[in-house]
Amino acid sequence: MPILSYIAGPREGKKQELLEELNRLNYCEAFPADNVDILILVTDTPDKETEEALQKRLKHMKNMESLSMTFGYNDELYEGERNDSEA
């Protein structure tokens, strides 16, 4: 159940369209920078399948020029590591 954040670059003149499009998608929240043509996207998916589907979807958005990940968090990984956490 990963939570990821990205910096998304829209195609020229498509910032608003991309913002609206992203916010319509399930599991996505996006907000724009005021003075630079980029968006911040935070995704929060319930499971691996959804995550993969979403990533595929993001890759094929026509208003998106670029997408780079800045943060990744995965619950499952943490659950597994939790046992040896007592120092």
Binding site: Y6, F31, N35, I40
Partner: peptide, 24 residues
């Protein structure tokens, strides 16, 4: 965690685009 994720993206963006602002 989501707010940490957003914070991280904003921080990265700020290092790429000095002076960038996010009212939202």
């Amino acid at each position: 965690i989501k707010s940490a994720a957003a914070t991280s993206a904003v921080a990265t963006a700020a290092s790429l685009f000095p002076g960038i602002s996010f009212a939202d």
